[in-house]
Write a protein that binds this DNA or RNA. Structure first.
Length: 359
DNA sequence: AACCCGTGGTA
DNA sequence: TTACCAAGGGT
């Protein structure tokens, strides 16, 4: 009817999917985890890449993905790995629950699914670390199942395409419903990846390249003249500042490392000992051993998602023949010469570099 | 729903 | 420099 023709909404779902898939066939990125056209995707590689790419850029993931699949090329090899090796291999990537869940999921696949990744969205969703997005993405990309794949790129593209002006996160229901209407039955995986490539290259958060966009003529946001204002996001809260002390305890060319508690901040990761992180500098409270601690002049700062931390650096040595009674349980003496292989999170790698520079 | 959970790049 | 942002999940 006439009202529909003059509506700012996309004329038809096939119109959007066809235009997008045509653009994708010409402009798709060649990525290490992406099967070549006509080839069968490897579910392990699809899953691993999706998890690595959660809140993480393609540029960061590229070398890490290559190293990972070189070491653990399939579910069976990963499931048989040592926990500390898996966590160390993830060091520097952040959001370490991803590594814990990845390892747990690999073991479930081997133990409960005969080493074969489940192919339905619902079964995938039940695995650790696979939420709504990743389960849909794997179902579509690895198995060709029709699934509504909604990540931050798709949210942005769809909000603009349909001119959805409600603020996130409330707008997610409407965005998902709109995404459903344009998701095709065929080439579901290509469609999902095309939406993400479009969001990455054309429909960018700032200064979108609308003149290059294959969906321009169907885009309500473009028609309205302000696509860059969508989706609307609410402002973030300021991050508080915390303080702490990092302890560098040296013995005969080795350094004391501890294992962080299995959950929470940097959970499961190797680390240098620290005391509590508080609103004011804690000084030398709760050191890992009784020793002659010396506080360095330089400090280390680091930003986490929800707070910034300012850390003092305390250094001490104990004699080679000594085994301090007060060394924390679970600690290990790690050769300083191979500290890079310990897999320290960035905060502690920064601290180690600063300490070794000062020594 | 709101909060926790890393890191590096960009403007 | 600050602020925002990225192929989110768990609780």
């Amino acid at each position: 009817m006439d009202a529909k023709r003059s509506s700012p909404l996309p004329a038809s779902a096939p119109g959007v999917a066809d235009a997008l898939l045509g653009w994708y066939d010409a402009h798709r990125r060649d990525l290490p985890w992406r099967a070549q056209p006509g080839d069968t995707p490897d579910p392990y590689r699809v899953w691993l890449s999706e998890v690595m790419l959660q809140q993480t850029t393609v540029a960061t993931v590229r070398p890490r993905f290559a190293a990972w699949v070189d070491r653990w090329p399939d579910f069976a090899s990963l499931a048989a790995a040592r926990d500390e090796d898996v966590m160390a291999a993830w060091a520097g990537l952040g959001y370490y629950a991803r590594a814990r869940n990845l390892f747990a999921a690999a073991k479930v696949v081997v133990a409960d699914h005969g080493g074969q990744f489940p192919r339905t969205e619902a079964e995938l969703r039940a695995l650790p670390g696979l939420g709504a997005y990743t389960a849909a993405a794997v179902a579509a990309i690895a198995f060709g199942e029709r699934a509504v794949v909604v990540d931050a790129n798709v949210e942005r593209v769809v909000a603009r395409l349909f001119a959805i002006r409600d603020a996130l996160p409330g707008a997610r229901v409407a965005i998902r419903a709109a995404a459903d209407t344009i998701t095709p039955d065929a080439r579901a995986g290509d469609f999902a990846q095309a939406m993400m490539d479009l969001g990455s290259a054309i429909c960018t958060p700032r200064n979108p390249r609308c003149l290059l966009c294959p969906l321009r003529t169907q885009c309500a946001g473009f028609a309205a003249g302000d696509p860059e204002t969508m989706p609307v996001k609410t402002a973030r809260k300021a991050r508080p500042h915390r303080h702490g002390t990092i302890f560098w305890l040296e013995r005969d060319g080795h350094i004391l490392l501890v294992r962080r508690p299995p959950t929470g901040l940097l959970g499961g990761m190797r680390a240098l000992p620290t005391g509590a992180w508080t609103d004011s500098p804690p000084g030398l409270a709760s050191p890992p051993a009784v020793a002659d601690w010396r506080v360095l002049d330089n400090r280390v700062t680091h930003g986490f998602t929800h707070f910034d931390i300012d850390l003092a650096l305390a250094v001490a040595r104990v004699e080679a023949h000594q085994t301090p009674n007060h060394v924390a349980e679970g600690g290990e003496w790690w050769p300083i010469a191979t500290l890079d292989a310990a897999g320290l999170p960035t905060l502690f790698a920064k601290a180690a570099a600063a300490i070794r520079r000062a020594s």
